[in-house]
């Protein structure tokens, strides 16, 4: 019990200052500017208590991400992060209902196999689901996982051709932020020697292409969708091949 209270006392700054709290709010504003959404402005619909609960959950996830210089000793694993981001969002989707609910749902369901394999590739490369361990990995599987993850993001976050025409909203912007920061956390060497500047650059270089795609790609994403199964097959083969090689090395 003492350990639990000490944990809360030592790590309150994660929730209030960095990477949650003020830093997350700055991230929302920046993402809002990049995606031309008005997530924080007063013209947008006010959140209900349920929305606020979801927002708190995703803010907490951002706060607990193992970004540089956070010092949180019990970082969640990748699978748990993704479950905590995605499953509550389905509840939100069904509860709130969108004009083009099926479009968003289809894009998300289409992306999940690639996302799952990207996660498997990253974990196989590092030998662990824990982000701290994944940060130490630099092999082919690691970078293949990062690229596949990035490819899965636009449909998953309803950007560009997959946008639903829904009014920009605090809760959905927070989910987008959580996904983008998770990708940054995976790609960065997140130990305490990494500077805050590296984090800012990594966040900007991840968010900028997504924002550019969102703003200027107005065509349909059918070709992207058509490539998803092939990418899944390629990634699955790559994981199988490299895991097989690892196994052979271990057996020798």
């Amino acid at each position: 019990m003492d350990e639990l209270l000490a944990l809360l006392g030592r790590h309150w700054r994660l929730l209030v200052l960095y990477p949650g709290g003020l830093t997350a709010l700055a991230g929302i504003v920046l993402l809002g500017l990049l995606l031309r959404s008005r997530a924080l402005s007063s013209t947008v619909e006010r959140p209900s208590p349920f929305d606020l609960l979801l927002a708190a959950l995703w803010l907490l996830l951002i706060a607990l991400l193992p970004l540089p210089r956070t010092g949180w000793p019990y970082a969640l694993d990748l699978a748990t992060y993704l479950t905590l981001i995605e499953l509550p969002f389905w509840l939100y989707l069904l509860r709130r209902g969108l004009a083009r609910l099926d479009r968003q749902a289809t894009a998300m369901l289409n992306s999940y196999p690639l996302l799952a394999l990207a996660m498997a590739a990253l974990a196989q490369g590092a030998g662990s689901f824990v982000v701290h361990e994944i940060n130490r990995s630099i092999g082919l599987l690691h970078w293949a996982g990062v690229v596949a993850w990035a490819i899965a993001l636009p449909p998953l976050l309803a950007l560009g051709p997959w946008q639903t025409g829904e009014q920009p909203y605090l809760v959905t912007t927070l989910r987008r932020l959580a996904h983008i920061v998770l990708l940054v956390a995976i790609a960065l060497p997140a130990h305490d020697d990494t500077s805050y500047l590296a984090l800012a650059i990594a966040f900007t270089t991840t968010a900028l292409p997504l924002a550019a795609l969102h703003r200027w790609w107005r065509g349909d994403g059918s070709r992207w969708d058509a490539w998803l199964p092939r990418l899944v097959a390629i990634l699955a083969l790559l994981i199988a091949f490299l895991s097989g090689q690892q196994l052979l090395v271990r057996l020798r």
């Binding site: 929730l15 709290g21 606020l52 907490l60 969640l76 030998g127 689901f129 824990v130």
Partner: peptide, 23 residues
């Protein structure tokens, strides 16, 4: 080596604090 971590009680406590802050 840790391969998966679920600090359920710690996260629940932090979630309570975060929900109160957000509210």
């Amino acid at each position: 080596r840790r391969v998966a971590v679920l600090p359920s009680i710690a996260v629940a406590l932090l979630a309570l604090v975060m929900a109160a802050l957000a509210w």
